[in-house]
Amino acid sequence: MTFEDSHPLAGSPSAAGSREPAKPRILVVTAVEAERDAVLRGIAGAPGGSPAAAFDAIAAGVGPASAAASTALALARAAATYDLVVSAGIGGGFVGQAEIGSLVLSDRIVSADLGAETPEAPGFLSVDELGFGSARVDANHAWNERLLAALLRAGLGAIHAPVITVSSATGTAATAALRAELVPGAASEGMEGFGVATAAAQLGIPVTELRAISNAVGPRDRAAWRIGEALQALEAAFRAIAVHIK
């Protein structure tokens, strides 16, 4: 689904005959439609319905494989003309790092379960340690500064920390502790970020991940989830970005 303003991407001539600078073009990739719709509601909240960037938003499916395939397809269809790709959605927050309702903006996107189990502590080796490639993609620093500034202008804050990607969501205290040990400082967990980041990185497009926290990473307790609150935080974040991104 696309949210487009009424002006050409290349800008239009001003009264003085010069051309206005092009708005940045941003692809937002969520897992499911509820997340995508929250993003689009936020973007639509820009004054006059005219956001400060040209946004496309897609629901790519759950998990890193679906996210990578759908992102790659969207980038191919657009001839890779995006300035930024954002993996966005709700997610788990590590206790003591990100509380329910807060926002986390990644500084690194890490596939926390891509590797091999081992009998030795800590019981896991990443593909980096195995020598089979890398399970990490750095978020774009310059774009993160712009996004953080936009959030701050709207009175919102965001934790700037690693976000991990998993194929199986954490459901026990032991797994939460292991993943926190493997990725020191990790603040949030999702299931799509590394897939989105891998597709963007293949084409050299800046990428980052933004998560609104719906639950604590750890023992699975659906009664404690606050999905509605997290979706509202995600909507507010994209309203701030649509209004204030520079």
Rank of each mutant, 00 (worst) to 15 (best):
I213A: 11
T170I: 10
L114C: 04
A68G: 14
V86Q: 09
E4Y: 02
A52H: 12
A80R: 13
I43F: 07
V217G: 09
A67L: 06
R220Y: 12
G61L: 14
A78V: 04
Y82H: 09
S70W: 00
G155A: 10
T208C: 15
S87P: 00
S134N: 06
I241L: 08
A199I: 14
K23Q: 11
A150I: 13
A161L: 09
P51V: 10
S6N: 14
L203W: 13
H141I: 12
H7I: 14
A240C: 00
T118E: 02
G190I: 06
F55R: 04
A161C: 03
I100F: 06
A116D: 01
V32Y: 11
I227C: 08
L182F: 05
S106D: 06
V243F: 01
R146W: 11
P24C: 07
G171S: 10
A230V: 05
G93K: 03
L84F: 06
E189G: 08
E209C: 09
G48Y: 12
D221K: 14
L148A: 12
Q232S: 14
S66K: 15
T175F: 00
P21G: 06
L147Q: 07
A177C: 04
A74I: 07
V196E: 02
V104L: 11
F194A: 15
I43Y: 03
H7K: 13
G133F: 02
R153M: 03
R153N: 10
S168H: 12
D56W: 12
I159P: 01
R25S: 14
E33I: 15
A121W: 06
A237Y: 07
W225I: 10
A242Q: 00
E99I: 07
I58S: 13
V163P: 01
L151G: 06
A112P: 05
R146H: 12
G49Q: 13
R36Q: 13
P51G: 13
E99F: 09
I58H: 13
T165D: 00
A223W: 05
E4F: 11
H160A: 10
R226L: 04
L147T: 08
V95C: 11
A149G: 14
A72F: 07
L151P: 01
L147H: 07
R77S: 08
G11Q: 01
D5T: 11
E145W: 05
A34P: 01
P219H: 09
E4G: 07
R25F: 10
A116F: 04
V86T: 07
T165R: 05
D107H: 13
V104D: 01
A88P: 05
S111I: 05
V127Y: 02
A161E: 01
F55W: 12
L73T: 13
L27P: 04
A31N: 03
E145I: 02
P24E: 07
A158W: 08
A200R: 12
P219L: 15
W225Y: 14
G123P: 03
T118Q: 09
G190L: 09
A236L: 09
R108D: 02
S134V: 04
G123M: 02
A54Y: 08
R211V: 13
A142R: 15
S66Q: 15
G157A: 15
G193A: 14
L73C: 11
P8L: 02
A187L: 08
G48F: 06
L40H: 08
